[in-house]
Design a binder for these strands. Structure first.
Lengths: 223, 223
DNA sequence: ACCTGAACACCGTTCAAGT
DNA sequence: ACCTGAACACCGTTCAAGT
């Protein structure tokens, strides 16, 4: 039985928060954070900037709703029936990959820490640590380390994306950085010089996951 | 023998990059990131906005120079003669405390990863990991985990500060968040509800350091 | 109830004109 | 060489006026 959602109007050009958020996501993904303007958004929706304010309080709320949309989708698809460590890795990678595809999301976690997006991540990580049998005494430390790491990297990646145009060549940027490192004073920066080659060929995602595993290994030592 | 720095002019009202950066830091510290405006800066220096552009390319460079000033001071004061783990903790806490006092600095690490501020942190952490005897194979993982964590938390704290006015009551905010957590659905968010009380009384700095120690413990397991 | 679009109060940045 | 400040091309947001 298909019970039609009895929407008041079927006109596809009627404005709604859902349509506004959808359009905002499209603009953010294709043009980056700088491209989202109330004027650009209004143009895409064939209306004036003022119309958007009837459905959305301000730009902050709009960005929050857009981020919730993305993270909500990620968290809904996390496989929850695996071993606790595996679920923690899946949540972490889910967030990482979402920020990779939609860098602007990374800035939004700190906007309101109790919005559904963040809450789902918080609960997902914390619940698995309990399932892992982490003692009450260190549970809060373990949880905050993981959450700080995951959301911190998300924010850094978002900041990086904001600096670089949406279609920058990652490999070229890494190569340029590595080359500049190799030219540093060997006496002042021996380590950075040495690590430059590895840095050029590294994969952000792998390094991110290695960090998660190091924290999990640390948790295991005091569990 | 006091060899006077033979500066061309002694007039204290002469504009210079140093004076501009100093004034920018004062504005950023007292009013937050939103308060730094070329007009506000010009007013404080009793000149026009255009004059600043003679000494500084744009706002981005200005923020970078200001952040370098702060982090440079922190890194210069790190005690380097202690045990490697202690130095790593000292660097991490130095960065953390600097962002606590000057939240706007936290956004600047990702601006240019090879500016002196970031480089000094990178080298400081990496060098101590080598001193710790971390094997070549896992050195890069260990280093990137620590650096990601330190700069990630810095960025999150900066973002939090940008949302809240510079003189917000921390304890009141934490209390309000904890209260909202306690009202969440116990079936959907059991962990978050349970952790809310601890969250209200937690200390950001202690939690940050606990995370560092967990990563160090993880590194020790594969060293 | 919902939409329109001009207008307001800002930005960063530029640039001709001054000294 | 360095400074001035008006002007340009933008913002987010508001609001009287429309339907």
């Amino acid at each position: 039985m298909k019970t039609d959602k009895n929407q008041p109007e079927r006109r596809s050009d009627a404005l709604s928060k859902a349509r506004i958020v959808e359009a905002a996501i499209a603009i953010l993904d294709s043009g980056g954070e700088g491209a989202l303007t109330f004027r650009a958004l209004a143009a895409r929706l064939s209306t004036g900037p003022g119309a958007i304010y009837w459905h959305v309080a301000n730009k902050n709320e709009l960005l929050g709703a857009a981020a919730d949309e993305i993270i909500g989708g990620v968290m809904a698809n996390v496989e929850r029936d695996a071993a606790p460590q595996a679920v923690i890795r899946a949540i972490a990678l889910g967030v990482f990959d979402a920020i990779d595809r939609h860098p602007w999301v990374g800035t939004q976690f700190s906007r309101d820490p109790l919005h559904s997006a963040s809450l789902q991540v918080f609960e997902g990580i914390g619940g698995r640590l309990q399932a892992l049998g982490v003692s009450e005494r260190v549970l809060f430390d373990a949880w905050s380390a993981l959450v700080n790491y995951i959301l911190g990297v998300a924010g850094q990646n978002a900041a990086n994306a904001r600096i670089q145009p949406p279609d920058t060549d990652r490999a070229a940027v890494l190569g340029a950085i590595a080359a500049r490192c190799a030219r540093l004073d060997p006496l002042e920066f021996p380590f950075v010089r040495q690590v430059a080659a590895q840095f050029r060929d590294h994969d952000d995602r792998e390094q991110f996951l290695a960090g998660i595993d190091l924290i999990l290994a640390g948790i295991a030592t005091i569990r």
